[in-house]
Amino acid sequence: MKQIFTSLLLIVVINSSVFSQTSTGFPEEYKVLHIEPSKTDSTISEANSPHLVVYNPEAKQGKLLFFMPGTGGIALKGPKSLFATAVNQGYHVINISYINTPAVAQICRGKVLAENSNCTKEFRTRRIYGNNNFSLIDDAPQDAIVNRLTKLLIYLSEHDKTGNWDTYLENGAPKWSEIAVSGQSQGGGMAAFIAKEQLVSRVVDFSGGWDYSDKPKIAKWYYSPSVTPSDVWYGTYHVTEPAAKIIKESYDAMGIPKSHIYPFNLPVPEGKKGHSNGVRNIGYVNDWIELLGKGN
């Protein structure tokens, strides 16, 4: 049953190898890499803080968990306990560094949204693929999320042979069938958007974006057909966050099964926000295991 944790279970979880961390924030047997985007593509200069790459070289090769942080998020400061759980589940993990400001909600609003009900779809298309003419953000084609992932995978396949990164490439592009997409807030919305158009192995959306077509109507792209089947879609939100209702509405519109929607409700520490609690609070580790499934 979700979020029912006995004191004994918590003791076992906290003392497990998942949280036996070194100075990197991860168990010592994990390989941790910090790679600047410009090292993978010399034309990249914006948002050049390092990508975070984590995996266990001794584990059986599994799927890739491709994670996208939210607005203002820095890859190296990502939710390490969540990522350690993913590696323990058999995944290689990439927390991508990308242009994540301004957010879609900061651009597609008011008069802009009133004049273009597809604003959020066009925004996300440019930020993810870089192949349209949406003019309200300055993201260059090389800055697109998919280009950054592609160039990172190619770089890793050449410079980190032990990671067997070719597994996640096909004809010089991401092999989406071997990749689970995930993210928090803006990044969760990006994961959902990708999964609509690419056949990925799994989708885990943590408090994904709240896109509108015309307030209070949610964006039309949420209702569009998905290439990725609904049985591998998962979504979470915290019941205290201001956008909880609209996030749940978007999950329903995307056809996420009711049993795959997790309304988190553990107390949020003072000074913290429910919006990011779902990827930070180790009290959800058993939920993370369910959400991620086995990577290998």
Rank of each mutant, 00 (worst) to 15 (best):
Q3F: 13
Q3T: 06
I4A: 09
I4L: 11
I4C: 06
F5V: 07
S7Y: 04
V12C: 08
S20F: 02
Q21D: 00
S23I: 04
T24G: 06
P27L: 12
E29K: 15
P37S: 03
K39I: 00
K39N: 13
S42I: 13
T43F: 06
T43P: 05
T43E: 10
S45T: 12
S45I: 13
E46Q: 15
E46W: 06
E46I: 07
L52H: 00
V53P: 05
P57H: 09
E58V: 08
A59L: 04
K60S: 14
G62L: 11
K63S: 14
K63N: 10
F66Y: 15
F67W: 15
M68D: 01
T71H: 01
K77H: 14
K77T: 09
G78K: 02
S81D: 13
L82K: 04
T85Y: 11
A86P: 02
G90P: 09
Y91E: 05
I94C: 09
N95R: 01
I107C: 11
L113N: 03
L113T: 05
A114L: 02
N116Y: 12
N118V: 04
C119R: 10
K121W: 10
E122D: 14
R127T: 15
R127V: 14
N132F: 02
S135R: 13
D138E: 14
D138S: 13
A140L: 15
Q142P: 01
D143E: 15
I154D: 03
I154M: 03
Y155Q: 04
H159L: 08
G163D: 07
G172F: 06
P174Y: 08
P174A: 08
W176V: 09
E178A: 15
I179Q: 07
A180F: 07
V181L: 02
G183L: 07
Q184W: 13
G187W: 07
D205V: 01
Y212W: 11
S213G: 15
P225T: 07
S226F: 08
V227H: 05
T228G: 00
P229V: 11
S230G: 00
S230H: 10
W233V: 02
W233S: 05
W233R: 10
T236M: 07
E241N: 02
E241L: 02
P242L: 01
A243Q: 14
I247F: 07
K248A: 12
Y251S: 04
D252N: 07
D252Y: 05
D252M: 13
P263T: 08
F264M: 15
N265H: 12
L266M: 11
P267G: 12
V268I: 12
E270R: 08
G271Q: 14
K273I: 03
H275V: 10
N277P: 02
V279F: 05
N281A: 11
I282P: 14
V285F: 10
W288E: 04
E290N: 15
K294T: 10
